[in-house]
Amino acid sequence: MGASQSTESNLTAGIQRHLSKIVVAPSFAASLFFVYGFILWTGYMAFSKSRMLPVWDWAGLRQYERLWQMERWHVAIENLLIFGGLFIVTCLVIGCLLAVLLDQRIRAEGALRTIFLYPMALSFIVTGTVWKWLLNPGLGLESMMHDLGWTSFEFDWLVNSDMAIYTVVIAAVWQASGFVMAMFLAALRGVDQDIIRAAYMDGASLPRIYFGIIIPSIRPVFLSAIVVLAHLAVKSFDLVIALTGGGPGYSSDLPATFMYTMAFQRNQLGVGAASAMMMLATVMAIIVPYLYSELRGGKKNG
């Protein structure tokens, strides 16, 4: 009896030992197929002759060449640089400023924080819709300013192909700056109070304390915020669609909308795939070094 009991418990122990793997396996398989498999799939498509329908004939770098020959793609890239740069910098400035201001024992801090952050809960489509209405040249802010007596005020960015991309920045900053504020505020609250006290005892003024001690000590949060914002910028799609539709013409296209248009409206699967791979490469260039340093840093701290 002892023997049979022992084998039985061996068997259950064996299954128990593998249960962990069995449980994770479906998710892992899904990830292998839907993430890695699909990336390879898209990557291959970018080397194929695919146009309207996916075909598997090898075309070498043909699609990439066509992509980089397209004026529209260059516009999208340029827009991404403008949008990404302004979006990140403005969000950082506003987020950091608000966090420092909120860190001054403010009455109703909770309410203010809620107000600053609520746009983050909205869909970009909702944000796009409302800002489209606000920036509407005929009835929006422009007419409001006219009513207020400033009749020479002109604000036609939404329909001006040189300026349309900046309206996307405005709306995006409105949506995401509160989130940066939340990240910074959490970091400020985590700064060692004794260091601040020591600096104060040494006679440092408040701005000195902030610029000399607190802000340098939350430097990692700047990095995290930049990575998150850059990642958001590259993936930005919904906002452009809802706000400008990529227009006028294709003047406010971003790579994300470019890819969508090529793949689903222009029957240019190959070019779409090539642009998607370019986007992936951009995101990887930002994320991989960051994740690597984060995960390594985590290990170092125990």
Partner: peptide, 13 residues
């Protein structure tokens, strides 16, 4: 998988 731009999986999906 959290970080890929989803454009890269649209066509196969």
């Amino acid at each position: 998988g959290c970080f890929i731009p989803f454009q890269v999986v649209l066509l196969p999906m």
